[in-house]
Design a protein around this nucleic acid. Structure first.
Lengths: 111, 111
DNA sequence: AATTTAATCAACCAAATGGTTGACTAAAGT
DNA sequence: ACTTTAGTCAACCATTTGGTTGATTAAATT
């Protein structure tokens, strides 16, 4: 999977309120069973199970299966990739503002 | 619109590769016309126009309309909101790791 | 005067998304 | 032995998404 695809998967996974809440619960309480996670939402267990699979596919969450109990835990590593993308974007943006500053300064000096 | 809804809109907007590429083009080249943006993609002008409206609704882009020419420019402010959410998440995560460290240290001391 | 250009709007379409219920497997509790 | 518990899988459904084409408005070019 390309970096672009990975980033797309991460951002899409993070763009759903329930999935963000799941991540918050996981970083707060550590590894948690699917059923215990589902308790916090008013959708079915099945729906939560699906959300978790999406988070898992994006790498935001890992699963430790002990027989019928699945312990889910957050993985913050992919978040760094998001950070990097937005930081890059902003740094290009800032550089452009600097260039604009230079242009304006030079124009002022020319007067 | 609630903060959660805003964040959802921003992340959803950023989760599409074409829209991310549009943002990159805009921070690199500054305000650009819709047609000139569309040139970079192999989808129709209409499709690009729709993408821009989604970015606009999320506040990631602003529009200056001069008669029939629409100048689109990036707005980096909402990006800060994304950053903040992920940073918060990670800081909670890091704090939990610290607590875990403490627990382990105390257990070691008890031996 | 005729045509090209810039962009949106509207209608339509296929695929993806987020939800549901019901069936299933196998462990654990009574 | 029976029932509850944990979780997934499969099928289904409504809505959203991302794309298309065609029509429209009014400016700019020839």
């Amino acid at each position: 999977m390309s970096d672009t695809q990975k980033l797309t998967a991460i951002l899409k996974a993070a763009s759903d309120p329930i999935r963000r809440e799941l991540l918050t619960l996981l970083v707060q309480h550590g590894p948690t069973r699917v059923t215990d996670l589902a308790r916090h939402f008013d959708v079915s267990l099945n729906a939560v199970s699906k959300h978790i699979k999406i988070l898992e596919a994006a790498g935001l969450v890992r699963r430790r299966t002990e027989w019928r109990e699945h312990l889910i835990e957050a993985d913050m590593d992919p978040v760094r990739q998001i950070d990097r993308w937005f930081q890059d974007l902003r740094s290009v943006w800032d550089r452009r503002l600097d260039v604009l500053d230079d242009v304006l300064k030079r124009e002022t000096e020319d007067e």
